[in-house]
C-alpha cells in the first residue's frame, strides 16, 4: 500500500477524456466502481458514471470491495485421521473507484491499521494494494455530515490516489497524489492538459463546509472519565440493536469467523461482517455477556471510534460521512451524541 505523496503539477482533464479512460479500464478487464443511491456499483457502461460532486453519499460505503461482507478464508476436507486445509486464491483484480467522496477515500488508510496490527491480513492487503481511489471534491452537505469535526474536509485529498475538482461542466482539475496514482495515469497522459492551481484553489476555498460540531480531543477526554455515566441509558433505550450503522460505515471492520459444512467431510471457513450493537456480539460460550444491555453496546461503539482506536493507532475510527445517522431506523445521530459528550448534558440520546 504505497501512500507516499508525490509532488506533481496539477492537470486538467475533460469529462469526455475521463470517460475514455474509464472505458479503457473496463475493456482491460478491471473493475470500475461508481457511487449510487444505495451502494457503489460496478460500471459496465461509462454513461452510467456518477460524477456529481453534490450527490448525497450512497447509503452503503465501498468497503465491501476490500473487506467483503462474507468471504471464505480456507476450505477443509476431513478424512478418518486427517484434516486437509486448502488455501483460497485471493482475487487480485485491479479495482478503480471513480468519484469517491473524501469521507470515503480515507477509509482504507484508517482500516489498514487494524488489518496489519498483530496479524497481516492478506485478504485486505491484497485488495487494498490493487485498489485505486480517484476522489472527487464534495459539495454536498446536510445535517448529518461532520467530516470537519474528525480532521477531514469536503476537499481533503487524504486517501485518494488521484483527486478531481470540477472546474466547470466539462472539465476537472486533476491532482496526482500518490505513486500508485501516477502509475495508473501515466499511460493516459495524452489526455491530460496542464492545469492552473490557482483556478482549482478558488473553487476548493469556496466550497461550503459543515461547521465543526465537536472537539475530538475533548470527546476523547470525556469518554475516558465517563465510562460508567448513566447518560448512556438514554441512547441505550432508543437504539434497536441492528447493525445498520456498522455495516454502512466506511471504517467499521469487526468480523466473525464461522465454519460452513457442505457435507460430513467438506466445508469452508467464512469471515463475515459482525456488528457490536448485536446482543450476541460479546455473548460468551458460558452464557455470560459483558455487554448485556444496549447502553453498554452503544457506549462501546462511541468509545471504540473516538477513544480506543485513537489510543491504539492514533486515528479516529470515523470519517464523518454521517451514513450511520442518515440511515438509522430510529434516527440516532452520532454527531449529536458525540457533540453531547460533555458534562452539561443531561442525557445522551
Amino acid at each position: 500500500m504505497t501512500q507516499r505523496s508525490i509532488q506533481m503539477d496539477e492537470k486538467i482533464i475533460s469529462r469526455v477524456d475521463l470517460l475514455n479512460i474509464c472505458q479503457d479500464v473496463i475493456e482491460k478487464g478491471n473493475t470500475l466502481l461508481t457511487p449510487g443511491v444505495a451502494d457503489y456499483s460496478v460500471v459496465k457502461d461509462v454513461s452510467n458514471l456518477n460524477l456529481d460532486a453534490s450527490a448525497l453519499p450512497s447509503k452503503i460505503s465501498y468497503k465491501s470491495y476490500v473487506f467483503p461482507r462474507t468471504e471464505p478464508v480456507l476450505y477443509y476436507k476431513r478424512s478418518k485421521n486427517d484434516v486437509q486445509l486448502i488455501d483460497v486464491n485471493i482475487d487480485s483484480k485491479k479495482i478503480v473507484i471513480l468519484g469517491a467522496k473524501p469521507c470515503d477515500a480515507n477509509s482504507l488508510n484508517i482500516m489498514k491499521h487494524l488489518f496489519n496490527w498483530d496479524y497481516s491480513d492478506e485478504f485486505f492487503n491484497m485488495r487494498a494494494k490493487n485498489f485505486i481511489v480517484i476522489g472527487l471534491m464534495c459539495s454536498h452537505f446536510d445535517e448529518y455530515c461532520f467530516c470537519t469535526s474528525v480532521g477531514s474536509s469536503p476537499v481533503s485529498e487524504k486517501g485518494s490516489d488521484i483527486f478531481l475538482i470540477p472546474l466547470d461542466e466539462n472539465n476537472y482539475a486533476m491532482k496526482i497524489i500518490t505513486d500508485k496514482g501516477k502509475e495508473f495515469i501515466t499511460p493516459y497522459s495524452g489526455y491530460l492538459k496542464s492545469g492552473d492551481e490557482n483556478r482549482s484553489k478558488r473553487i476548493t476555498e469556496n466550497v461550503k463546509q459543515p461547521d465543526v460540531a465537536f472537539d475530538s480531543s475533548e470527546v476523547y477526554k470525556w469518554l475516558g472519565e465517563n465510562f460508567e455515566s448513566p447518560k448512556w441509558e438514554g441512547v441505550g433505550n432508543l437504539c434497536l440493536s441492528c447493525a445498520q450503522c456498522a455495516f454502512v460505515c466506511p471504517v467499521c471492520h469487526c468480523f466473525d469467523i464461522t465454519d460452513e459444512d457442505y457435507s460430513y467431510t467438506e466445508g469452508r471457513r467464512m469471515k463475515n461482517w459482525d456488528g457490536c450493537q448485536f446482543g450476541n456480539f460479546t455473548l460468551h460460550a458460558s452464557g455470560h455477556n459483558p455487554r448485556d444491555i444496549q447502553s453498554k453496546r452503544y457506549r462501546q461503539r462511541v468509545n471504540h471510534k473516538f477513544r480506543y482506536y485513537v489510543n491504539k493507532f492514533g486515528e479516529i475510527l470515523c470519517t464523518g460521512c454521517g451514513r450511520c445517522s442518515r440511515g438509522c431506523p430510529v434516527s440516532v445521530d452520532i454527531k449529536e451524541i458525540v457533540s453531547n459528550c460533555k458534562n452539561d448534558q443531561k442525557e445522551l440520546r
Binding site: R69, L240, C242, A243, Q244, F247, N272, W273, G275, G327
Partner: peptide
C-alpha cells in the same frame, strides 16, 4: 443479493 444482513428489518 443486496442484503448485507444488518438485520435492521428485524430490529424495527
Amino acid at each position: 443479493d443486496k442484503c448485507i444482513k444488518c438485520y435492521a428489518c428485524r430490529a424495527v
